[in-house]
Computed example of a mutant assay.
Amino acid sequence: MEQGALRVDANVSLHRTGEPLGTRTEIKNIGSVRGVASAIRYEIDRQRALLQDGGVVSQETRSWDAVEKVTVPMRDKEVVQDYRFMPEPNLPPLRVNLKTKEDSKDVISVPLIRDTIPELPEESRKRIIEKYRVRPEIAIQLVNEPALWELFQGVTQDKSRDPTKVANLLMNDLLTVLNKNKLEVTECPVTTTQLCELTDLLLTKKINLDAFKQILNELVENPDSERSPARLVADKGLSLVTDDDEITQRCNEVIEENPKLVQQYKNGKVKVFKALLGILTKNTQGKIDMAQASEKLKELLKK
C-alpha cells in the first residue's frame, strides 16, 4: 500500500442450496479492483462449467492472468493443513437450535436471539416506506440519522402533515441550517413542538418557504424552547398575503402601473407575464401567495 500497489487473494467455491460447501480454489495476487471482479467472475464460470460436465473442482491455488483474463493453476493443496488452518482452543463448538426458543448452556436458540435483536436497518427502511409512502432515498437517510428519524416521527404524528414534505423540510432546510452553524442533528436546539408549529404555518400557506427558512435560522441561532414561530412570524411581518381582496388589489396596481407590458401580453406576447409576476413579487416583498396571485393576475388580464 505504501508503494501504491494492490495485492488481493480471493477464494471461490460453489455448491447447491442444501448441499455441503464445495471445494475451494484460491486465486493469488490479483493486482487491481477491476481484476478482483474479473477473476472471481471467471472462476465462478469455470467451476460451474466443470461441475455441470460432471467434473470435480481441485483444491488448488491459481493465479490471475490479467492479459488473457483467465485463472491458471499454480500449485495443488491436497489437505487443509496446506492452508495453515488450525483449531482455536479458546472457541468451543457452537451448537444451535434453529426451530424452537428452547435455550440451554450448550445449545443456542436462533429464534430466541432473533426476538431480542432490535429492528434491523433494512426492516426499518421497508417499514418507513410502507407506512409513510416516502421514496427509498428518504427512508435510507432517516434510518441513517436516528435523531432526524425521531424528529420526523414527532412532526408526522399529526397525519394531516404530508410525510414527504416534512422529510424534505427536515433533510433539506433543517440540515442546511444546522450545518451552517456546525451543529449535529443530536444538538438541534429546535424542539419538536416548534417544528410542528413552523411546518403548519408553511403547509397552511400562512408563510412561504423563504419565511420558513428565516424563522428556522432564527430558532437555531438564538435557541429558546419557549419561543413561538407564529409570534416570530408576526413580529417580523413575514405573514403571507392570502386574502383574495388584497391580492386582487395588488394585481390591479401592477396592471395599472405597467400598461405597456399589459398591452404586449394582450397582443399575444405571453412571455411578459413572468415580468408582471416579478413586479408583483417585488412590490409585495415576496409576501404573497404566488400561486393564488398568478391565477388572479391571469383572470384580470383577460378583461
Rank of each mutant, 00 (worst) to 15 (best):
G4I: 05
L6A: 08
V8F: 07
V12F: 05
R24V: 09
T25S: 10
T25N: 09
G31Q: 15
R34H: 10
V36Y: 07
S38Q: 15
A39H: 13
I44K: 12
D45P: 02
R48Q: 06
R48H: 11
D53N: 13
W64P: 01
W64A: 01
V70H: 14
D76K: 14
Q81G: 05
Q81C: 07
F85Y: 11
P87N: 03
E88K: 12
P89W: 11
L91G: 04
R95C: 05
K101D: 07
D103T: 11
S109V: 11
V110G: 09
V110L: 14
I117R: 11
P118E: 09
R127W: 12
I129Y: 06
I129K: 07
E130L: 15
E130C: 09
R133V: 09
V134N: 03
P136I: 05
E137M: 06
E137I: 13
A139F: 11
E145K: 03
P163N: 15
A167N: 10
L169R: 13
T176P: 04
N179C: 11
T186Q: 13
E187Q: 15
L195R: 06
E197I: 05
K206D: 10
I207Y: 08
I207T: 08
A211T: 08
I215V: 12
L219V: 08
S225H: 10
S225L: 06
S225W: 06
E226Q: 05
P229N: 06
G237E: 13
V241F: 01
E246N: 12
I247W: 04
T248K: 02
C251E: 05
E256I: 15
P259L: 10
K260L: 12
L276P: 01
L276C: 07
K302N: 02
K303R: 03
